[in-house]
Simulated scan of single mutants.
Amino acid sequence: MRELKILAVVVVLTLITYWGVEPFAHSQMHPHVDPANYNFEQADKVSAKEKVEEKKEALEKAEAEAKKTGNEKVTHLPKKEYDAAVKFQKRIDSFWESNNATLKLKGNATNGATLVQSNCTACHSIKSQGFPQVMDDASSAAAYGVVPPDLSTSGKLYTKDYLVAFIKEPTLGQKVSHKFVDGRVHPMPSYSWMQPQDIADMVAYLQSIAPDKMTDKQVFQDACQRCHGIKYGDMKGGTMSAHTPAENIKAYMGKVPPDLSQYIRSRGAKYLHEFINDPQKHLEGTAMPRVGLSKASEEKVISYLEKVGDSKKAQREELGPKFLIYLVIFAIFAWLWKASKWRDIH
């Protein structure tokens, strides 16, 4: 009986730690954020509204303090931040509303081919259509800060609304307008001067040349390798270096983007989905852009990172239940053995 009491205490303390202490600690180190949202218009409107509410609350607290202390200076910064949040909310709402006109149009891929080839191939390659890189990676990075992506698979990787948003205004599409201020210019120019039909045609062309299928590794290479490398290799031992040299990407981003070999272990799939979908949720002010991947493409990136950094996951998960069954059987035999040896003593 004493052993059962001890076991009960151990079980209760373990459950309290697992269901109480650990989740609380995790919530403090990793505050809850909204789940990944692939409707970027909706996501941007929600985040802009939340930011206004946050800054309004901070302003109200500052005004209450000013009324109490008589020091009006404490309201200056909160008022400035609140006004900026309201202004940005109006800007982003207007931006997405204007994009809806383009999204409703049926694109003409033939006209789009002419537009893309005349406007985009000066910087971007489209290797599948016979347009090679204009410059090597090092030269491109030196010129733009980051190597421009090949457009062969963009129609497959990214959502339609993201492509429209990015072509029209890259800083808003990527959610990095906070970075390009005080004269700083995004390497990708804005095409807001184009007619909605022209942008719709360009997107239709990019979708028409996109491959039907891509492997997990191909999606990672096209979506992530311009900035991120894989140092420790995949299951076949291959490694990847980021296309953009470290010195260029550091100047462009502010720091060298991390190697992603073990990120699936250190961050977990849920965090990576949220971060890739919208980096600002977990790291406000980061230079990491919203990538704009569709849900299917993002899942392939995560799948590849699991193959690289957690290749034994399936085997480990398969072994888990078997090991627990073994422990239960072992515990039963141990109890029976103990009972037979101590029966006479008790």
Rank of each mutant, 00 (worst) to 15 (best):
D310K: 10
A314R: 03
P321M: 05
A269I: 00
S297T: 04
Q315P: 03
H282S: 06
Q315C: 08
N277K: 13
A296D: 14
T286C: 08
R316T: 01
N277S: 13
E318I: 04
Y304W: 11
A314F: 03
H282R: 12
K295R: 15
L293S: 06
R290M: 06
S303V: 01
V301K: 02
K313P: 01
S297F: 13
K300M: 09
K307S: 02
D278F: 15
P289V: 02
D278S: 12
L305R: 04
L283N: 07
K312N: 07
D278V: 07
L283M: 10
V308K: 04
G285L: 09
S311G: 05
E299Q: 13
Q315V: 08
K313F: 08
K295I: 10
G292W: 13
S297I: 11
L305G: 01
E298H: 11
L293T: 06
K295F: 15
M288H: 04
E284T: 03
S297G: 09
D310F: 14
K307I: 00
A287V: 04
D278I: 12
G320Q: 10
E299K: 12
D278E: 15
Q280C: 11
E317K: 12
E298L: 13
L319T: 02
N277F: 14
Y304A: 01
Y271I: 00
S294R: 14
F275W: 09
P289N: 06
E317N: 07
E284D: 10
R290Y: 05
R290K: 14
E318H: 09
E298C: 14
K307P: 00
L272M: 11
L305P: 00
E284P: 11
E299M: 05
R316F: 06
V291Y: 13
K313L: 04
S297N: 08
K300C: 07
P279N: 06
E298G: 07
G309Y: 03
R316N: 07
Q280Y: 06
L305A: 02
N277T: 10
K307R: 03
G320T: 01
K313S: 03
E306I: 00
A269F: 04
L293E: 11
G285Q: 10
S294Q: 15
S297D: 07
D310L: 13
L305M: 05
L319I: 05
V301A: 01
V291E: 07
S294A: 13
K300Y: 11
S294H: 14
E318Y: 14
K270G: 03
P289A: 11
Y304I: 00
S297L: 12
E299L: 06
V301W: 03
K312P: 02
I302H: 05
Q280D: 03
M288S: 02
K313A: 04
E299V: 02
D278G: 12
